[in-house]
Nucleic acid binder design. Structure first.
Lengths: 225, 225
DNA sequence: TCAAAAGTGTTCGTCTTACACCCATGA
DNA sequence: TCATGGGTGTAAGACGAACACTTTTGA
């Protein structure tokens, strides 16, 4: 390989995470306002250039930690984005991740060295985004919907456990669909993603709900049986 | 973005395809013997450096065309591989693709400018591979198994149609599993991937089989109903 | 005792699995 | 007419959808 070959010289890698949360039944994504060129002043997803000394996931987690202070997110790589002109500076390929965090755990850094603002936006009320982040976000939403029915990715949203009614509201928010309570319970328990703790969650004035937690390990289902 | 920053200067992108075929009930992958450093003389998957003027898929297809002469393969991006030390020259991130081709259509170029040999290898008899291609191949096999039950990716293997007994042998080879003939028919037809043509395929000495073809468009199934 | 929210079971239709016989062809 | 391989149906169990009443709690 000739590292001076003009055909492929001067390339770079982005690691970009669509970081979701669910607040009061609304699915939201964290957006950051840029403080530098290119796309100065525009909103983008969490992310940036991958460093030479870190793996893809490590880089994505570093960017998340810089913007949110959160260090224990589960993220999942879902697709690479590499249109020739997706970045105006040099040829950049973006590796896209999704992740979920409990928004109550985050104190969003409103201003950092590279960003002038940050906030949660409902996924159906997204402003114009810089780079190709609108495309990345749309694919991220699809991936998120696939992941929550197959993996324990929602564990990051409920680190201390969740009741089935809460969980149902979360699924309904992310999938944008309503479920019958009885059928939801059967289905979600059949997915083998969560397990009963022996605690109950007391609210005022109504029957306490059982608390479940996401398993640490999910076994893969057989395909095509 | 400071393009001279040492933290992320001097990166590059690989596009790598695990190109599969099925020959007489055996799933095989195309491997190439390298003629240059690094990994001179070692076997690797089809691929190479992405050029600055091409999208990811375009680059992967160019590499396939250079090695096989085939230009109408369906490929699917499935994962990026970015361990810090996966390439010994400069920091390279690989974008992994899978694809299928009918081996009868290929005259493998045994010798090209960059490669000294090329051949099909059964996926359970793979020699040591250069770079991180063993890892890429293992994940590619898993992806292939998922794809053939959800998409028309097998269309490239049977451009002129296929009978159900042929198709069953193919699924059995790729999934490494046997099926009951009657149940296989029901299941595959239910997947809505193929449709009846009104032709039959005559062999000698037995009942002619109906010919089906893969649809061009597969509609996505609802998740979680 | 009431309001609010959680918990639970049954029926029906559809899909999954296991399993055996008939059909069309060329030799 | 026979050997080879292709095509089809049915019964039993599992899963998905629709649907209503009972339980627990605090006010």
């Amino acid at each position: 390989m000739d590292i001076k070959n003009k055909l492929y010289q001067g390339q770079g890698i982005h690691v970009i995470t669509a970081l979701f949360t669910v607040i009061q039944g609304v699915t939201k994504v964290l957006l950051i306002k840029r403080k530098n060129e290119p796309f100065l002043g525009e909103w983008v997803l969490t992310g940036g250039a991958l460093y030479n000394n870190e793996d893809l996931e490590t880089g994505a987690l570093r960017e998340i930690a810089e913007k949110t202070g959160i260090t224990d997110v589960k993220i999942k790589q879902f697709k690479a984005f590499g249109k020739v002109d997706r970045s105006p500076v040099i040829r950049m390929v973006a590796i896209g991740f999704i992740g979920l965090i409990d928004s109550k755990r985050v104190n969003i850094l409103r201003e950092t060295k590279n960003t002038s603002n940050a906030d949660w936006f409902a996924i159906d009320q997204i402003p114009p985004l810089g780079f190709d982040h609108e495309e990345i976000l749309q694919e991220a939403i699809i991936e998120l919907r696939k992941e929550i029915v197959k993996t324990n990715i929602l564990k990051s949203l409920f680190p201390s456990g969740v009741t089935l009614p809460e969980l149902q509201k979360t699924y309904e928010a992310i999938l944008n669909k309503k479920f019958d309570r009885r059928n939801f319970r059967k289905k979600i328990l059949n997915l083998d993603l969560i397990e009963d703790t022996n605690q109950v969650d007391k609210f005022e004035g109504n029957k306490p709900a059982k608390v479940y937690k996401f398993k640490d390990q999910i076994e893969d289902k057989d395909i095509f049986l």
